[in-house]
Design a protein around this nucleic acid. Structure first.
Lengths: 257, 257
DNA sequence: CGATGGCGTGTACGTCGTATCGATCGAGAT
DNA sequence: ATCTCGATCGATACGACGTACACGCCATCG
């Protein structure tokens, strides 16, 4: 689907492909090189934060780095690896909750901070492909690792602990993604969160509602009071999930605070 | 972010923008026109199913329809509306569970069928933007509507019912997305699900594991027995969520089978 | 001091989305 | 029966993108 080739790299002529992260970990061979994977990733994240993912162009990025369009290709095999680098970089910002907080609070914080990370870097939602959405970057793995640490010693088998961690993280990313897309959709049509929002998702929604196919949904839009409170919605589902975990733990014959 | 303009369309020269879905609902003005939104969407879905989302090109699509590259633009304002059409079309395939099954079983089926839909049309994962990921297409709204119907009359307020429905749907899409991306990643490096899989996520994983930063994760990979059983993982998290809902319903003073 | 090899440059190709304008043809009015 | 008009589709073209490729530069090491 999306071909991955290896970037040229320092160190000689092996034949085995070396993963991006191994290449990244290699120290800069000289202090005077203009580019490093870090510099590239930092610049790219800055652009994406400021102008969205569409602004991320190999040419634009090169301009930002004061360098020729093709220069970055020595450190990155292509745009998808660049995106991987960006994803990993921002996940380094996430502060991992202490295990001592107990599994529930720690998992809760993990989810909430995941949400905040997405909101701080909305372009993350648009990166669905590759290793970006899985956990296969160092800093994302560290987050999963902490999730497992938090559940360690509670009597869960490996499969269950991992599935719980993934469920919570997936829920958090999914809900935060919804929130971001809604927000962008609103900005795109420049509504404030004022009257139009309160009257449903006008205007594209109004037609669909007028068809009468969605009476309950329509009633919800009119009835609900916390419509614009995305955090409330986020936390509600999160608590459902954590309640389920708590029940599972109790069933396993353990409890915890 | 992604500009939306209105496609030219039959019927004269109004000035108010008309939503895609309203335009779609308009009957074909003549029986002899070559193109309709439906024909376009069907062809596009066929291509995407067979060759992935990257194969979807306005030119390719036109060729598939036996028509000039720009022809589809009379029915669709741009590629993003085409994607909206595709998203909506495939969601029409999802069979809605009967309300009589009871909220838990119905919600469970909704989640499982959502998952199957994604697996049948893996390109859905790659469409993050626009109304695609929110529920703002007719067939997706119908799914949400059924979710609300299933929870109706159980004493939940509008906000809670909607949040629950969305939580379940978001969880389902997120987990199915993980599954698809993992599957694609595996195909990309042509492992079977054989030895490499069983030994972790080799080869790009092996380097990261060898750093020793992820002892628990590493142990999980070695210990777990249902690693490749994505459905099991899916259902585990789903049950957690539904357990949480059940607790909330019990707290609201209701029960149900 | 000469050679080596990594680093960044310059140029160019193929493909994409889509703006614009012109040709065509069926239906409704006369 | 003819005219006319607008809906429909075709042809051409433009700018931007990702990236392949081959070349100059320069620090380093023998």
């Amino acid at each position: 689907m999306s071909p991955r080739k290896e970037a040229a790299r320092p160190g000689g002529a092996e034949e085995r492909p070396v993963s991006l992260w191994e290449r990244v970990a290699r120290p800069a061979p000289a202090a005077r090189v203009a580019l490093t994977p870090e510099r590239i990733a930092v610049a790219a994240v800055a652009v994406a934060d400021a102008e969205g993912l569409d602004a991320i162009t190999m040419r634009r990025l090169a301009a930002e780095l004061g360098v020729a369009p093709m220069a970055a290709y020595r450190y990155v095999s292509g745009k998808s690896e660049l995106l991987d680098l960006m994803v990993d970089l921002v996940h380094g910002e996430l502060e991992l909750p202490e295990v001592e907080l107990g599994w529930r609070e720690a998992l809760r914080l993990l989810a909430l901070r995941n949400r905040e990370l997405l909101l701080d870097h909305p372009w993350l939602v648009r990166i669905a492909g590759g290793e970006g959405a899985l956990a296969l970057t160092p800093n994302r793995l560290a987050i999963t690792e902490r999730g497992l640490a938090v559940l360690d010693g509670l009597g869960l088998d490996a499969d269950t602990a991992l599935a719980i961690t993934r469920s919570v993280a997936t829920y958090a990313r999914g809900m935060a993604g919804n929130e971001i897309l809604l927000r962008e959709l609103m900005a795109e049509q420049n509504w404030g969160s004022g009257e139009e929002l309160r009257s449903g998702l006008a205007p594209q929604m109004t037609y669909l509602m007028s068809t009468g196919r969605y009476p309950l949904y329509n009633r919800s839009l009119l009835t609900q009071r916390r419509k614009d409170d995305a955090l409330w919605q986020f936390e509600l589902g999160l608590e459902l999930l954590l309640d389920g975990v708590a029940a599972r733990l109790a069933g396993a014959g353990f409890q915890d605070g």
